[in-house]
Nucleic acid binder design. Structure first.
Lengths: 237, 237
DNA sequence: CCCGGCTCAGTGGCCTAGCCAATAGGTCAC
DNA sequence: GTGACCTATTGGCTAGGCCACTGAGCCGGG
């Protein structure tokens, strides 16, 4: 067990998080739409059995992620984004049925990132990409699946693209991507094939060839997509 | 002045937002790094001249966006993402300098959406696209800039792609996109050129040709990018 | 009848104060 | 050296209070 594999620090769940989640679920379950009001804070806090201050924290959290707008003197109003949020939740829950969607989103973002990396990479970026390749190779050579190396490689490419906005969108769906990654690399032979794909991407980036980089990344993401095709059969067996 | 151009509702700035911003700035100005601790809440609240409850709200906000982790009994710790976040904030603030970044993000997302729309569009989707085209054409014919029609067209293409995750990411950056849209369509001749671009995209989608749709969308987004090139000169004039 | 001003009730905003839970560090005993 | 215990510091949450904001309704004047 290496240091990187040590169990993560125990995560305490703060009350505001639980309350925020309850509220989001309640919005979805009750078909609330944009413009609908939540119950007054005093009522809601009593009903949820928490203090008003704690409820207010939860509403801050929900406001920050765009589910509600809190209006002084008026009430707390559901936003249009709230429905979108529910859809994302469903996307995560119905993961087995939504995998192709994650793949196509990865395709959109990561082929662009690879092309930008080919144009913008610094020596430092290339060193980081090479280090990730070496790390994954060592893991795969030792019989591992290369999950962390895969992660590092893609993060290095994203960094080399020097596009904070795209990086942010990647971060937004990072949990979903992680799942496709783990499933892909769990297939026999996939780690090594994935490593080869990374190699081709890195070559194109080093060569400063955006089109080649985008093509290599597209093929790499499609390889993950092959898993999506195989998996339904494995489940019915 | 149409309904869509009415001034937005006056935005009240809550204290927690100001405090959160102050803290983020302070982290940046003082070169705090991942793992560094903020001062204790009681101290920090006194120094900032707010109550601890208000500071706690600000920290909830910062925790939700990933700038800090709040540890019970230990303190509030800066995350790795904090530095990245400062860059995003700058990206938004320095909009004039960051426009190319929005463009490249649009390019990534919207060319994929156009390709998917070509594959997946229903008759209803096509009708919606056509309606948006007609709406924008009428607006432009009447001397308008076609902002709303442009918006409707892109929304219709996004809907026709039937990819909720990509649609979500589009929604995520919708404010930034709106700004590029308004600036682009404000240039003489752009509304009509944009309308022609839309026509080509719609044709490819109707024909069910993903590559042509992606190419047409790419060219359309690049046309917006031309504005980005022109604009710095307009500012120095 | 319509519009503007005022009032009231309901709502959120923020504060104060208090006490408990969690954490880290230090000390002591085995 | 290790484990248990204690202490100081830190955050977590509650309760209560008062003020600011908002929307709706009412009244008076034109």
């Amino acid at each position: 067990m290496t240091a990187s594999e040590f169990p993560a620090r125990l995560a305490r769940v703060r009350l505001y998080e639980q309350v925020a989640e309850q509220i989001t679920r309640w919005i979805g379950d009750n078909g609330l739409r944009a413009g609908d009001r939540l119950p007054p804070e005093r009522d809601l806090a009593t009903r949820l059995g928490v203090s008003r201050a704690t409820l207010s924290q939860a509403l801050v959290a929900l406001e920050v992620i765009g589910v509600v707008v809190v209006r002084h003197g008026d009430g707390t109003v559901v936003t249009e984004a709230a429905t979108g949020h529910a859809r994302i939740g469903e996307a995560i829950r119905d993961h087995a049925d939504r995998l192709p969607e994650v793949i196509e989103t990865r395709d959109a973002l990561e082929t662009k990132l690879a092309a930008l990396a080919a144009r913008r990479r610094s020596d430092e970026d290339l060193a980081r990409i090479d280090a990730a390749l070496a790390f994954m190779a060592a893991d795969v050579d030792n019989g591992g699946r290369g999950v962390e190396g895969d992660e590092r490689f893609h993060a290095a490419v994203t960094t080399a693209a020097h596009s904070p906005l795209l990086a942010r969108l990647m971060a937004e769906i990072s949990d979903l991507i992680r799942e496709t990654r783990i499933e892909s690399l769990g297939q026999p032979g996939r780690p090594r094939a994935s490593l080869a794909g990374h190699g081709a991407i890195a070559e194109a980036i080093r060569a400063g060839d955006p089109d080649a980089a985008a093509r290599a990344m597209h093929e790499h993401v499609e390889m993950v997509s092959d898993v999506a095709v195989l998996r339904p059969e494995a489940e019915s067996a």
